[in-house]
Design a protein around this nucleic acid. Structure first.
Lengths: 176, 176
DNA sequence: TATAACATGTAACAAGTTACATGATTTC
DNA sequence: GAAATCATGTAACTTGTTACATGTTATA
């Protein structure tokens, strides 16, 4: 559930890091994975510290701003595994975010609806392009699984949208 | 984006209603669509009122608690269409909630990982059962589209999970 | 007569975002 | 000398949840 906390803890599992480093890594490498904002990462680190899930040491090079280096503690590892397990077994039992709109599509006329879904289709196709051009990750299977899953869902959405657009076309023809 | 607000406005598009009615409808009929809590609906209605997106009239039958009947205004309709359009064209550009865990699956041993994914698979299959037993909606295509989309995504997840579990099995055999 | 259903609401809290502030260092 | 990068943080705000409080009426 608490994906952001899991993400931060997961990154600390590989190595001790300071906040800037985590934010930088997410921005550079995990752009298609998480849109967590910087302030959020900093406040999660503080929260984890308060809970005893991380240890902090301060480092300083020359006159640069001091770095707060965070290391995951035993308690933090327990939390990590707890969050990991609950994340892996979790199945969303409600309509995915963004599908509420679909339910109300009849309030638009068919032509408008079709055009909007075509915009969405183009976005999805762009995302498919980006996602399928990511080279396979060397270490472990997890990261590759995540991207393969995302790609599978995007393809599923693409197929669904194409079918729906076709259906709207047919309905428009019928009503002429 | 703001799915809950869109949901409330959408329900008010069909008819004027009071808060209890909206909550009741969601609880009874939209259990697989939204998990919005009652207090949330009430506070959204207040917010919409403050923004001039709904009008309120008070009704009372006998000595029962008075009902605040909310009707959508012209401004509210504009907001509804704005939210509807942005919902329909929106494509999530990050990994779906719940997939962060997948990235860190290598921290578990294969057997554990497999068992957790099997739990998830069973949940997904249950949801598929529920979702495919919902009778088609008579009016319009929107509601049916939403359920068909959800079903398609669930099937996609099922397929992915089965493949992944198989893959974990193979990896376990190899390492013996 | 107990309890479910009707009908509303508030207060406290948690999580996240936005926007701002600070100040050093490297690079153009 | 200006701008980007390094490194941290806070304050205000929004959204949503949990848990509680209130009182009536229909039903078992």
């Amino acid at each position: 559930m608490d994906e952001r906390e899991l993400l931060v803890l997961g990154l600390l599992m590989t190595q001790s890091q300071h906040g800037y480093q985590i934010n930088d890594f997410i921005e550079r490498n995990l752009g298609q994975v998480s849109d967590m904002k910087k302030a959020t990462a900093y406040s999660i680190l503080k929260r984890l510290d308060k809970q005893g899930c991380v240890d902090v040491t301060v480092e300083q090079e020359g006159n640069r701003p001091p770095r707060q280096i965070y290391s995951i503690t035993e308690k933090g590892k327990l939390l990590f595994f707890e969050l990991l397990r609950s994340s892996l077994i979790h199945a969303e039992n409600v309509t995915p975010a963004g599908d509420i709109g679909l339910m109300f599509i009849d309030h638009l006329d068919r032509k408008d609806a079709k055009e909007l879904l075509e915009i969405k289709l183009r976005k999805i196709e762009q995302l498919i392009g980006i996602c399928s051009s990511i080279p396979a990750h060397e270490e472990g299977i997890g990261v590759n699984l995540a991207f393969r899953h995302r790609l599978a869902l995007l393809e599923c959405n693409r197929k669904f949208l194409m079918g729906t657009i076709q259906e709207l076309n047919n309905l428009m023809k019928d009503s002429v």
